[in-house]
Amino acid sequence: MLDDTDRRILRHLLADPQADNAALADRAGVTTATLWRRLDRLRDRGILRATEARIDWRALGYAVEVSLRFTLDKTEPRAFDRFTAAARQLPEVIEIQTFLGSVDIRLSVIARDMGDWQRIYRDRILGLPHVTDIEPLMLVATIKDTAELTL
């Protein structure tokens, strides 16, 4: 699937996603033209999906992050679709994940402070459809946040 050159390119890209192509090619030991071809092939194969910006929400004034685990009403056939459609409309929801097991969906929600969080929870979260249980988990610290694996 991946050869050593692809792995080397991906390792260097993960280590420094802001590196320009010339620097990335140099670090990976390939020409710039080879790097372009390899990156295009990795994108075409769906291995490299995007180069994305990562925003530090705390630096923008969002001091509170809460992970909410939801269990939905399993007797309602459209519960999942209606819930996710409503959750997508909330600007404070920065991530939606689905699971198998006792928890159906997890939302990551940001707020400026505890007063803002209480307003969001009361006015928006509690109004989401088909919820049978909510478990909020307040983020205290992020110990590890990486997409890197040994390639």
Score class of each variant (00 low, 15 high):
residue 138 M to I: 07
residue 56 D to G: 06
residue 14 L to H: 07
residue 20 D to C: 09
residue 148 E to M: 07
residue 130 H to A: 10
residue 7 R to T: 05
residue 78 R to N: 09
residue 29 G to E: 15
residue 82 R to W: 12
residue 12 H to S: 10
residue 120 I to M: 07
residue 87 A to P: 13
residue 109 V to P: 00
residue 99 F to S: 10
residue 17 P to G: 05
residue 134 I to Y: 02
residue 79 A to H: 04
residue 119 R to G: 03
residue 52 E to Q: 01
residue 40 D to S: 08
residue 65 E to S: 12
residue 151 L to I: 12
residue 4 D to K: 13
residue 120 I to E: 01
residue 65 E to G: 09
residue 23 A to T: 11
residue 88 R to W: 15
residue 112 R to Y: 06
residue 77 P to N: 01
residue 129 P to D: 07
residue 98 T to R: 11
residue 73 D to M: 04
residue 16 D to R: 12
residue 98 T to P: 03
residue 33 A to E: 15
residue 130 H to C: 10
residue 49 R to K: 04
residue 27 R to S: 06
residue 65 E to P: 06
residue 107 L to W: 14
residue 60 L to R: 10
residue 55 I to E: 09
residue 95 E to M: 09
residue 118 Q to A: 05
residue 65 E to M: 10
residue 78 R to L: 07
residue 23 A to P: 07
residue 84 T to D: 15
residue 111 A to Q: 02
residue 70 F to E: 06
residue 27 R to G: 00
residue 33 A to Q: 15
residue 10 L to Y: 05
residue 32 T to W: 08
residue 24 L to N: 12
residue 86 A to M: 13
residue 59 A to V: 08
residue 80 F to N: 02
residue 5 T to I: 14
residue 67 S to F: 14
residue 53 A to M: 11
residue 9 I to D: 10
residue 58 R to S: 05
residue 40 D to G: 05
residue 145 D to Q: 09
residue 137 L to N: 10
residue 135 E to R: 03
residue 8 R to S: 15
residue 106 R to Y: 01
residue 43 R to K: 05
residue 76 E to V: 12
residue 97 Q to H: 03
residue 63 A to S: 11
residue 60 L to P: 01
residue 147 A to W: 00
residue 79 A to I: 05
residue 53 A to I: 06
residue 75 T to H: 07
residue 122 R to S: 11
residue 67 S to V: 13
residue 138 M to D: 14
residue 56 D to V: 01
residue 21 N to Y: 15
residue 48 L to D: 03
residue 25 A to M: 15
residue 133 D to W: 03
residue 100 L to W: 14
residue 135 E to T: 07
residue 92 E to M: 10
residue 16 D to Q: 09
residue 149 L to T: 09
residue 128 L to D: 14
residue 114 M to H: 06
residue 136 P to Q: 14
residue 117 W to A: 00
residue 44 D to A: 08
residue 11 R to P: 08
residue 122 R to M: 11
residue 13 L to R: 08
residue 119 R to P: 02
residue 102 S to D: 06
residue 140 V to T: 11
residue 5 T to K: 03
residue 135 E to P: 01
residue 24 L to I: 11
residue 19 A to K: 02
residue 61 G to P: 00
residue 26 D to A: 12
residue 30 V to M: 14
residue 80 F to D: 09
residue 130 H to L: 09
residue 127 G to D: 12
residue 113 D to V: 04
residue 33 A to Y: 15
residue 119 R to K: 05
residue 1 M to V: 07
residue 9 I to W: 15
residue 12 H to L: 15
residue 58 R to K: 06
residue 119 R to F: 01
residue 69 R to F: 13
residue 26 D to V: 11
residue 122 R to A: 10
residue 72 L to I: 01
residue 22 A to Q: 11
residue 94 I to D: 07
residue 39 L to C: 08
residue 149 L to E: 14
residue 145 D to L: 03
residue 52 E to F: 00
residue 7 R to A: 08
residue 45 R to P: 02
residue 150 T to E: 13
residue 147 A to K: 02
residue 144 K to M: 08
residue 148 E to W: 03
residue 102 S to G: 09
